[in-house]
Deep mutational scan, measured.
Amino acid sequence: VTTYKLVINGKTLKGETTTKAVDAETAEKAFKQYANDNGVDGVWTYDDATKTFTVTEMV
């Protein structure tokens, strides 16, 4: 189990959260659900070296 981080660069919501998951795919599903629940829709990137997902909403 690995800890993954999500950085949110939203128009109205900004911040970070973490989740523990067995792999990046599982973490991504959890983060996308979290973003969807919070009304964040944007471009996703993932950095495997730092285990960090970033979602950026276009203005």
Score class of each variant (00 low, 15 high):
A24G: 04
V43K: 08
F31S: 01
A21L: 03
D48F: 08
N9Q: 10
L6N: 01
Y34A: 03
N9E: 09
D41L: 12
V40C: 04
K14H: 11
G42R: 01
D41N: 09
F53C: 01
Y4P: 00
V7H: 05
V40P: 02
K29I: 10
G10K: 04
V1Y: 11
A30S: 08
D48R: 07
A35R: 01
T3R: 05
T45G: 06
A35N: 04
Y4K: 00
T45H: 10
W44D: 00
N9W: 13
G42P: 01
T52W: 02
D48T: 08
W44H: 01
D23T: 05
K51W: 06
A27S: 02
K32H: 09
M58V: 12
Y34V: 04
K5I: 12
A21I: 02
Q33H: 07
T2N: 12
K32Q: 08
A24L: 14
V22K: 08
K14M: 10
V40N: 02
G39Q: 08
K51Y: 12
D47R: 03
F53K: 00
N36K: 15
T3G: 04
D37P: 02
A24W: 14
V55L: 11
K20W: 15
L13Q: 08
T2Q: 13
A35Q: 02
A30F: 15
T12A: 10
V59S: 12
M58I: 14
L6S: 01
A21F: 05
E28F: 15
T19Q: 07
F31I: 02
V43P: 03
V1H: 10
T2Y: 15
N9M: 13
A49V: 11
F53A: 01
Y34M: 04
V7M: 07
F53H: 02
L6M: 05
G10Q: 05
L13N: 07
W44Y: 02
D48G: 07
T45K: 06
K11S: 09
V22P: 09
K5C: 06
T3L: 13
V22R: 07
V40S: 02
N38R: 14
Y34F: 09
N36M: 13
V55D: 00
V43T: 10
W44A: 01
A49I: 15
L13I: 15
Y4N: 00
K11Y: 11
I8M: 10
E25D: 12
E25Y: 14
A21W: 03
V40R: 02
T52V: 07
G10S: 11
T18I: 08
K51E: 04
V40A: 03
T54V: 06
A35K: 01
T12S: 14
E57F: 06
E57C: 05
F31G: 00
T52Q: 04
G15C: 12
K29T: 10
K51D: 03
L13C: 12
